Simulated assay, not measured.
Amino acid sequence: MTAQRILSWTPAAIVFDCDGTLMDTECHWQDARLRALREFGFTPAPGFTERAKGLHYTECGVLMAEEAGHPELGADLTERLLGHFGALVADRPLTMPGARRLVEQAARFAPLAVASNCPKEVVESSLGTAGLLDRFDHVVVPDDDNGIRPKPHPDVYLTAARLCGTDPADTLAVEDSHCGIEAAERAGMRILGVGPWPAERTMALVDLWVRSLDEPELRGWAGDRVPAQIPGNRPTMKP
């Protein structure tokens, strides 16, 4: 792990994952998965939560159906999953510790984007309710019409960097799941991982791992990126 590749560096843009990174929605996904499975009389196998974390919701529905031994129910389980998740998020939107402060600090010196496997309306609704949506220049999600595949494909990250006008190598990805970290690594970005200490295979892909976006070293790093105004009011770094 090369922490200094993050802590001594100013990215040209920052792309955040949403669920589990900015918004505390992983508990909602867990509840939604369990509710959908129980409605069909199924119980998830051990380790299912980790296998499902970070997957696009359609892929998660397929996984649920396969693990239940009824692959023909993939579409039905996907529909139930998304319905339950949307209701839970609307009822209790929560930001992750430190997310609001980091986003507000980062927005002073770099364009920001979100790259998520969730439907765009869900991402925008949850960020809007949390008062964070207007901090982001772009929200990128999988899109069949435009050939944007879900994580772990790199498409959402590559698209976010392009929209921000930056090279992926000059862009920081902030992620909490192996699926998302793999996508960012395949896009060629530097990676900040966040959450409980991960498996070795995940740790091998990140430059810096923090337990929370509220950790002092991360707050200090973001606070030290002092912006200077340039034409067009886009913040940039002073030499």
Rank of each mutant, 00 (worst) to 15 (best):
G20P: 05
T166M: 10
D155M: 04
W9E: 00
R38E: 11
L205D: 04
P239N: 12
I148Y: 02
L218Q: 09
F85H: 12
K238W: 01
C27A: 14
G220I: 05
M1K: 03
G47I: 15
R219Q: 15
V139S: 13
V62N: 11
F136N: 04
E175L: 05
Q30W: 12
M189N: 07
D134M: 00
R100T: 14
C27I: 14
P119A: 12
K53E: 07
A68S: 11
T166I: 12
R33E: 15
G98M: 10
R149V: 01
D19C: 10
V62H: 13
G20E: 07
F85T: 13
V156W: 04
L34D: 07
M189K: 09
D24T: 12
R51P: 11
N233R: 05
I14Q: 01
Q105R: 12
L82G: 11
Q30N: 15
E26M: 13
I148C: 03
T21S: 11
E124N: 06
R51W: 03
R5M: 02
G69A: 09
V194I: 03
M64W: 12
R190E: 05
A99I: 07
M64E: 13
H56R: 08
T166V: 15
N117L: 11
L163T: 02
V210H: 00
G180V: 10
G20A: 11
T171H: 05
R225H: 11
L22H: 03
W9C: 01
P227I: 07
L218S: 07
I230N: 08
R51L: 15
A99P: 02
N146Q: 11
Q105D: 08
A115T: 05
V156T: 14
V114L: 01
E39G: 14
A204N: 05
A90S: 14
H56P: 02
W29P: 08
N233Q: 06
Q229F: 10
A45M: 11
A68L: 07
D134L: 00
A36S: 15
R219D: 12
E66T: 14
R149W: 00
T236D: 10
E200C: 00
G47M: 15
V141R: 09
L218D: 05
R5Q: 05
L158I: 09
A87R: 15
D19F: 03
Q4T: 02
